[in-house]
Nucleic acid binder design. Structure first.
Length: 269
DNA sequence: ATGACGGAAGTTTTCCGA
């Protein structure tokens, strides 16, 4: 019955950020870490470096853009890349099944948890082709998750959603009104995911106001806390009673050459 | 301020992210 930790982090190039990821894992041992924006092909993925740190890894890479991975203590099973039923030439989703140390009240049955790590499309600008792709992708994800949740009652969907829930997730709600990450269409889709049977882990707990997971590199965005909360961990209803804490770890954003995103961490007990 | 900052590609400048 040991507590378990799950985390998600958009690292904006694993080539650049690998040392920071290894440092963070050493200070923050987790059961599963979902990475987004690897920006590398699978043949370049540093499996050996993670292995040396005590972690298994599975990746779904792509040249230049996108790319996702799951770093884990236990090996992943039933690995699926991208969204079944939704045709996509970008590497955005990787799923795996992991042992779950609690589950049956008697404690002698080991159940499993399905972990979906995702890099949601950016969408660029409302009305653009990329925005339409984002909405279609979101519908494809939701349709697939509906069946996935039936197969896997214990499920975590975590990653860079590129969507804010509401104004509390935005440093300048007026300035960002109807802008990308903040449109009604995107928020409708995010809430539709919730309606499928998921909960925003961050808001299951009291949080400091102006808690963000991303800050623009430009104009001292981090220093001025001009950010948005767009990285999320959603958990299925079966897991909600096990959730113990959820936080955004701003520490790595203070590194030299940081990612523009901070990790989000979930603790289950 | 159709800007800034940062990464990738790849070659001096563009695309893209959020």
């Amino acid at each position: 019955m040991s507590p378990m930790k799950f985390a998600t982090w958009n690292i904006n190039s694993l080539t650049v950020r690998l040392p920071q990821v290894l440092d963070w894992l050493a200070a923050n041992p987790v059961d599963v870490l979902a990475l987004q924006e690897l920006k590398m092909t699978d043949d370049k993925f540093p499996h050996a470096a993670f292995q040396a740190a005590g972690y298994e890894s599975v990746c779904f890479g792509q040249k230049t853009y996108n790319g996702v991975a799951l770093i884990s203590r236990a090996p992943a099973h039933d690995i699926v890349r991208n969204i079944p039923g939704f045709s996509d030439d970008m590497a955005r989703v990787i799923s795996g099944t992991f042992p779950l140390d609690f589950g049956a009240p008697t404690g002698d049955v080991q159940s499993t948890i399905r972990v979906v790590g995702a890099y949601f499309p950016n969408g660029q600008e409302p009305g653009s082709d990329k925005f339409e792709y984002k909405l279609a992708w979101l519908q494809g994800l939701r349709s697939w998750l509906r069946t996935e949740l039936v197969k896997h009652p214990n499920l975590v969907l975590m990653g860079d959603y590129n969507i804010t829930f509401d104004d509390a997730d935005v440093w300048d709600p007026e300035g960002m009104r109807d802008q990308i990450h903040c449109t009604d269409e995107e928020r409708y889709e995010l809430n539709a995911l919730i309606a499928v049977g998921l909960a925003d882990a961050h808001r299951l707990f009291p949080q400091a106001p102006k808690s963000y997971s991303w800050w623009d590199y430009r104009d001292f965005g981090f220093k001025r806390n001009r950010g948005m909360r767009i990285d999320h961990i959603l958990l299925s209803q079966a897991l909600q009673a096990q959730a113990k804490a959820c936080w955004i770890d701003k520490t790595p954003r203070r590194n030299e050459r940081p990612s523009d995103h901070a990790p989000v961490v979930l603790e289950l007990t």
